[in-house]
Each structure stands twice: as C-alpha cells, then as structure tokens.
Design a protein around this nucleic acid. Structure first.
Lengths: 345, 345
DNA sequence: CTGAAAGCGCTTACAG
DNA sequence: CTGAAAGCGCTTACAG
C-alpha cells in the first residue's frame, strides 16, 4: 500500500506539497496539483486515515449507534436501512463516511458508547432508541462529541434531536376512534422504558381526556413490539370482561400477532375490533385487512438527521431555529379500524 | 479527553511503562500495573485508536460491508441484524469491534470498498452479496486485506467463504415437488447477477434432470426479491398456457406477492399451486397458509463467519480443513406445498 | 522492571 | 509556490 512518501518520491517533490495538492489548498501550482492528482490515481494512493486523524483530530467518519437487540425486536424491518441510506447521501456531500456501530445485546449501551467515544473512531454520532433518562447523552455532552438523537429524552437540554411524532399519531388515532363511536379504547405499549412509550401513553391519556373519556389503567396492555407481543396483547384483551372495541399499537408489527389471535376466535380487525398500528412499514402494508397506520419517508428522515448533526458540528449552516424537531407522519387509512360503534344502543 | 501523557504525568512514570501496563506486557511490576489500571479507570483513559493504529498498523476493528440497496430489497428483514449479533459476540472475545460499512445505493460497491481499504479503517472485512465475478475479491486479495465472503464466487480461489446452501435447498425442494407428483415446476429468481441465483438455478436444473424432467426455460421467472416481485412472478405464471403446478422461490418475501396475486383469482397456495420459499424468516413464519421453507441460525452463522475471518487473520487456530463452507439449512414443512398431483390422470 | 527515544503517516505553521 | 520540520498519541526495540 503506497503512502505519501512513496508518492512524493515518485514525483520528486516534498510530501508537504503532495499533501497540499491533494487537500485542495489554494497555494499550489496548477501543474503541480495536476501531476499529483494523476500520480495518486495511478498509484492508487488514498491517505491513511490514522495519520490524518492523529494530526487533525478528526476522522471524517460519523457513527450511527444502534442496538442489535432493539433492531431484532422493535425495528426488525428495514427501518434502519432506510434511514442509513438517507444519512449517507447527506453525509457524502461533506465527504463524511457513515459507519454503523452495532451495540451487541451482550453489552451495556453506555459502556459500548464510552469505548467508541474514547477510541475516537468518529467525529460525530447519531444515537437511537433514547430513554427518558439516557446516560449516553450525558456522556456525549461531557466529552463534547457532536451528536443528534433519534428520539427525545429528558436528559440533556440543548442537543439536536428528531423524533417521530408519537404524540400526533396517538392523538389522531384517538380522535378517529372516538369519531367512530368508540369509548373503550386500549393501548398496546412495549415493556421497555424507551421515551417514546411515555410520550405515546401521555398523548393517549390527554386525547381521551379531551373527549371526556376516563382513563382506565386496565386498558394499558404491554407486550414485545413484534408478532409474539401482539399475540399476547390480544390474548389479554380477549379475556377482559368489558372488552375494548379499539386498540392503538405503539408498533405495527404487533398487529400481526393480534390478527393471528383474533382469527383463532373467528374475529377480524375492522369488523370486531378496531386497530390502528403505528408505522406504515413495508411489512405493515402487507397485512390483511389492511392496517390503518402512519407513513413517513425514511430517506428524508436520514437526510434531516445528517443535517442536524452537520449543523451542530459547524459543517453546514441551518436556517432552522429549533434544536429539536418532531417528524410528521401521515395517516394511511386502512380497513383495520372500520368498525363503527352505534352509541344509541 | 485524557491522553497517555496526562496519565503518565499523573502517576509520575513514563508513558512507556503506562503503555506496557495497559497492554498486559509481562515485564511490568505488579504494583505499577495495578496503579496504572486504577488511574486509567479513574481518569477514564482509553487509548486513542489513531495513535495505536498508526504505530501498530492495526485498528482492532472489523468491517462488515453491506449494500443498503440490497438490504432494502432482497434482505429487507433482520437477516443482517441476526448475523451482526453473532459476529460481534465472536469478535468481542478477541477485543475486536465490529463496524458496519453500508455502501449507499448511489455509490459503486467497488469504489466504496477501495476507499474503505485505503483508509485503513479496519483490519479485516466481511463482504456479502457476492457476484459470480466479483471485483471486490480481487481488490481485497491484491491489498492483502483479510476477509471472508458471505456467498460464493468464481473470483479468487483460496479465500474463506461461507454460503447458505442454495443448492441443497433447491435439490430438496425439487425432490419434494416430484415426490408429490409435480412435473411442471417453475423457479423464481431475481434479476440481479448475484452468484446465488446461478447456483440455485443450476441445482434446480440438475435436480429436474435426475428425475428425468426436461428443463423448460419458460419456467424460469424473474422478479425482485420482495412482495412486488412475487406479484409479478405470479402474474406471469398465471398467464402461462400450460401452467406450472409448483414453484420454487429464491427468496421467501416473494411469497407474499405471490399469495396476494393468487388470492385475486381465488387461488390458494398449497391447494392450487405448490410453493416452497427460501428462508424461514420471522416474516415468512407469518404467512398463511404457512410457507414451506428452510431455517438456519443467523447468530451461529455470524459466529462462524467471525471464526473464518479470525482464522485467516491468524488470530485463532481452526481445526477446519476447508477454506469454504456450505451452511446447512433445515426444512420447515408448511402448508404451501400440500398440493398433490395425481399422475394417473 | 523502567525510561528515553524512534517512528508509524499524515497536515500545517513557518521560512524562504 | 515549495521544502524542511514539528508534532498529533501511541507502541516498542533498546539501554540500563
């Protein structure tokens, strides 16, 4: 592998000039630059990143922190893949490479992050799956690592974040249920203490209140955000004495198990129980009856995350005044919430 | 952020001794080592990776190269997530971190790899989605980067690889179809020139031949390896004059679109058409009628990939004599291939 | 067992 | 516009 010395020797000039030519400094003779670029291409020279990093203190890489355990469960589909593609296209414009840093299920996310930060592998980070109290945020702030959070948190105060509109989704869904006569409305949450669950629940409560419906803690069901969890939630629901007529899911994959459990009792979504899922994912689009859910562009979300991060790194200027952003989601009407309750009975 | 100088000053010893203590060299006084480790923990010192890399020529990181475009399509589910988890647990034992290097859909995979190699970001790589002719393999061999390929290729000759048992799956499937009386058996492939498609097709042909069934090129259908592709394949199939009674899919997600298209004509898998999918993924497990497919442990596959790579890096000893390995998959019987053709008619 | 020093591959003030 | 040199943070022969 050819290094800058080889290249300089080959051209009979100093390594300083080679470096300046390659890094587009203005103070280089046009011809010299041309020769250097040509030689670099010929010999396949690319700067060793360790050398650069050590000297400059930057790595030209951005890390995207994901938990493989979460990914296995809550985000088992291509949620991250879509976001990654958007992130990359935005980062590439600034010659930054994206590396995904998967925290294994064996390891504590905070320890993992600590290691990644100390290694100085990346110049900035995107963290996901934020908790209400999230020590990772404290750590990043303390170490002055630029970052953007995909998800809100009560930790930290002034860092950039983007979060899906969990509150809006809950509100629109409850309004929809109520307008169709429902008053016994359940909600399915995950067992985890991700911040999104709290937001979702709070918005659910507030929306019920607005409609004069009393909050019933028994209608808060919990399960894993996958097929299995949906099945369990459905089982709980079917056993209730005063069975709810509608249910709002924090994750669309739960619908799969829910449908399955309903079918076992010859019940069907949209006919016997109204269901609104969360994201209109590729997988959700396959459900039958079709699932009422909310869509967003993962690509655009990735681009927006990159821009927030680049802004906080001082790489780009942003016209946005807000440090945080709620990412809007659009209702996609399906058949799963077609059931109308006649309130006159 | 504290560096080795700070730590040495704090302890009133030389940086050399600090380094030796931290790196578990034998020639360090027990007490000294203890003090150093304690101080490192107190001050939160972790060696800057750029400094280490520059000196040692290694990064202690392994890269997993994936194409976000492929991931969006062919492997939209958590295939990679499962493999990543296995990779990590095996690599962690050797204090190697895994970084996922996503090649965006905008970029040529070879250019991307070239950049990643030149940057010297990682000590070894796992590449996926191999092509029959795969320039990435040439590049890695030329640059002496240790790697393991997830997928076979005709390129290169002596590099480690692991591949899912596409040939075995095709063979078992065809045998199953034939034993149930089928002789008009179609195969659904992707448009891509991934090597696996060729293996799958060849094994399909060979299996037919073994049963004395002539190969009919018209029965080779092509579509994207997702719902949409399955729908298109089904449409082609339904329009055929002498319609096949069975079809083998190179990817299980195609079944979704296939089922959908069949339903439009009031047809059903396992009753009107026999279908065998490929992998018994979480998503495939949800299909109704249940899809006959083949399962494997993604976690174990990840571990095996890591071990192959570590062996080729000289980090571990392996008892395996073979440089390549076919990863076995186990049949999971479903209802989708229940149709039996009575050959007496 | 420890310290002083070289050097990994770069970039960048500083001279000229 | 170019070259010589310093220095980023480490590890590791080499002395002692």
């Amino acid at each position: 592998m050819v290094n800058i010395k080889d290249l300089a020797k080959h051209l009979n000039i100093s390594i300083g000039t080679v470096s300046r030519a390659l890094n587009n400094r203005p103070d280089v003779n046009k011809d010299t630059r041309k020769k250097v670029l040509q030689a670099a291409a010929d010999l396949g020279y690319v700067a060793n990143q360790s050398g650069r990093s050590l000297r400059q203190g930057t790595t030209n890489a951005i890390g995207f922190l994901i938990n493989t355990s979460d990914a296995n469960e809550a985000n088992s589909d291509n949620f991250f893949m879509g976001v990654i593609d958007g992130l990359q296209s935005a980062l590439a414009k600034k010659h930054l490479d994206l590396v995904v840093l998967p925290c294994s299920s064996d390891e504590d996310p905070e320890d993992y992050l600590k290691r990644m930060v100390a290694r100085r592998l990346v110049d900035g980070m995107i963290i996901s799956a934020t908790h209400t109290i999230d020590k990772r945020i404290t750590l990043l702030v303390k170490n002055k690592v630029p970052f953007v959070a995909l998800g809100q948190s009560d930790t930290g105060s002034n860092h950039p974040w983007i979060d899906l509109d969990f509150e809006g989704v809950a509100q629109v869904s409850i309004d929809r249920f109520v307008s169709r006569g429902h008053s016994r409305i359940a909600i399915a949450l995950s067992h985890s203490d991700l911040n999104l669950g709290r937001l979702f629940l709070n918005s659910y409560k507030a929306s019920l209140k607005r409609h004069g419906i009393a909050f019933d803690p028994k209608l808060v069901l919990k399960g894993a955000t996958n097929d299995q969890g949906g099945y369990e939630v459905a089982s709980q629901l079917l056993e209730m004495a005063d069975r709810p007529t509608a249910i709002l899911l924090v994750h669309e994959l739960m619908a799969q198990g829910l449908y399955r459990r309903l079918a076992e009792d010859d019940l069907q979504a949209g006919r016997d129980l109204s269901i609104i899922g969360f994201r209109n994912s590729a997988q959700a689009r396959m459900f039958s009856p079709s699932l009422t859910s909310f869509k967003l562009s993962l690509q655009d979300l990735g681009v927006a995350l990159a821009e927030k991060l680049l802004t906080s790194m001082g790489t780009i200027e942003s016209s946005e005044e807000q440090i945080g952003k709620i990412w809007p989601m659009q209702l996609v009407e399906g058949e799963s919430d077609a059931l109308i309750i006649n309130s006159n009975r």
